[in-house]
């Protein structure tokens, strides 16, 4: 399999994730879709690193993983707090901060 296939897979995964973020209401699902987008990007990074024969992309993939882990911690905590307060995980319900 050439690296081009991996890039194509990454694009498909990213689009799935992006569409999920835009159309789903459940905060947990949105969260998972974000993870999906991040991992799609990781996959693209690694594939491009392989194509160009450089290590930079692989290094960045590790950074992304660390950032994603941190994001999961903070994001899940916020999610828990909102759920406890409102008994709902719908992002459309939490829309008080507006004009």
């Amino acid at each position: 399999m050439s690296p081009g296939h991996y890039v194509a897979l990454a694009v498909i995964l990213f689009v799935i994730g992006a569409v999920g973020v835009l159309i789903r209401r459940n905060a947990l699902v949105i969260f998972m879709c974000i993870e999906l987008m991040l991992n799609a990007v990781n996959l693209a990074f690694v594939a491009f690193a392989r194509m160009h024969g450089q290590l930079d992309g692989q290094v960045v993939a590790f950074f992304v993983m660390v950032v994603a882990a941190a994001e999961v911690v903070v994001g899940l905590a916020i999610l828990m707090a909102i759920f406890r307060a409102r008994r709902s995980a719908s992002v459309d319900d939490a829309s008080l901060l507006k004009y």
Binding site: L22, I23, V91, L96, Y99
Partner: peptide, 17 residues
């Protein structure tokens, strides 16, 4: 212009996208 601030996370995400 303020009316664009709907409070809906998904609309923000769409505009970012």
């Amino acid at each position: 212009a303020r009316r664009a601030q709907t409070g809906f996370v998904r609309s923000y995400a769409l505009s970012m996208f």
